[in-house]
Each structure stands twice: as C-alpha cells, then as structure tokens.
C-alpha cells in the first residue's frame, strides 16, 4: 500500500499503485483544491508539487509519489499567505477560479526554482496551464509581483 506524504502528513492509501495521484488526493484524502480538468496532462488544473517540482497529478501514479513529498494548494501555506497567493489576491486574478489552484502551484514552483524570472520565462512556465476565463494577463502581473518575494 503506497504511503503518501501530503502537506507534511503521512497517509497510506488503499488504492492500486497505478491510481493517479489526482484521485488519491481528491477522493481518498478529500483534498479537492486540486482540480480535474482533462486527465491527460493537457490543462494543468491538477498541478501539485512533488519534492518541490510542479507535476500533473493526473499523470502521476501514486506509486511514483510513494515516500516523496507532495504539496497541494491546501498545504502551500498555512493561512493562504504564500507570496504567490498574496499576489493573486492583490491582482484579483481568479474569475471562476477552477484553474487557479493549478496556476498558483505552477507559479510557486517556478519562483522557487527561479526567483527572478523574465516575462518570457513566466509565460513559458505558465503555458502548460489553461484558463478558459481569460485571466492570463493578470496571472502574468501576479507572478511578476510575487517574484523576488519568495
């Protein structure tokens, strides 16, 4: 039975090893902040961190996450005050909000690896995440705002 370390806590998940991490998080652990958009690695709605790197939870079998640190939107900060989350509020990014957990996790991973990205690097990193509401201009502004604060 794979053991998941999610937001600093350990769980053993009673599921087949090839079960996507997305469903383990959402259905087994009740962490529904991580969203299902395509199930195919195409939209980024399910983006979480695995040992600090952004991955598609829908493309990550739980066996691949066994014993590694998973961070979801719920665990990104204690009170929603990660610099990226703060910037998201300051720039008033979300509309429907459905894509935004994934966007925030992607942006947080980018800034962790590259605290001062260029605009091009921001756009390049964020291009794996779709937003149908068209919040992209504000996403770019929010990542620029958060840059340097992480």
């Amino acid at each position: 039975m794979p053991t998941l370390i999610v937001n600093g806590r350990s769980f053993s998940v009673d599921a087949e090893p090839e079960t996507p991490l997305l469903w383990a998080l959402r259905e087994h652990l009740g962490l529904t902040g991580t969203k299902f958009g395509c199930g195919a690695g195409l939209c980024g709605a399910c983006t979480v961190h695995l040992d600090g790197e952004a991955v598609f939870a829908c493309q990550t079998p739980i066996e691949a996450a066994d014993g590694r640190a998973v961070t979801t939107i719920e665990g990104l900060s204690n009170t929603g005050d990660h610099p990226v989350q703060r910037a998201w509020v300051q720039e008033q990014v979300p509309q429907c909000g459905y894509c935004q957990s994934g966007q925030i996790m992607r942006a947080a991973a980018l800034l962790a690896a590259n605290p001062r990205p260029t605009r091009e690097e921001i756009i390049d990193a964020m291009s794996s995440n779709l937003c149908r509401c068209g919040t992209y201009p504000r996403i770019i502004r929010a990542v620029e705002r958060a840059a340097g604060e992480v």
């Binding site: 529904t32 989350q85 509020v89």
Partner: peptide, 27 residues
C-alpha cells in the same frame, strides 16, 4: 473593493459541484 470569492479561490477552498462529497456516496 476586492472580490469576495477570491481568497477562497487562491486556497483551494472554493467548492465546485465536482468537489462535493456526501457520506456513503457512489460515483
């Protein structure tokens, strides 16, 4: 003024119908 729904949407706290879980629920 800041939109009222935005803090929840930056923390994964907003509940969409796809997120609803009810005890004893089948998929």
């Amino acid at each position: 003024p800041d939109r009222r729904d935005i803090p929840g949407k930056t923390r994964g706290g907003t509940v969409y119908s796809i997120d609803v879980r009810v005890p004893n629920m089948l998929y």
